[in-house]
Amino acid sequence: MEMKRKGMKNRVLFQQEFEIQGGDFVNAGESSCKIRNTLREIGINSDIIRRIAIAAYEAEMNVVMYAQHGTMKINVYQDNILLIIDDKGPGIENIELAMKPGFSTATEEMREMGFGAGMGLPNIKKNSDVFQITSKVGQGTSLEIKILLNGKNG
């Protein structure tokens, strides 16, 4: 599912895209680790990196746990970083409920692995300056996570 993006006046300074395979728990988290390493290399402030790493990891894990497939794109602009996650999956019926801390539809097996605490989406929101979620049941879910950079490197 692709979300409509509008009003992107800024030029992209840096862009990277990752494929996320649903159900692949062994490699889960690697895209987030790569994003973190890249942001470090281009000299982004460590507090900004910490927030992006948390948001990216939670979003990546949601794709791994619930969707068939997804992509995670990171766009670095002059004054913000935009993380876009689109997945093909079951979608979310009630977004308001999904955003509620503690609510989770994770299986027993996932919970035993320490997932499904119902903290994923709330963690993402908490670490974003702008957070948008759209979903269509039976099609998929899209997240847009924007983190503002203050000054040169945040």
Binding site: F25, A28, G29, Y57, E58, M113, N123
Partner: peptide, 26 residues
Amino acid sequence: LLSDVMANSKKGDVWITLQVHPNVVA
């Protein structure tokens, strides 16, 4: 709980857990 560790642990912490699967590394 991995989300809890993501949210609340800090750089340089030693992490005590019963989880042994590969996702703890990420």
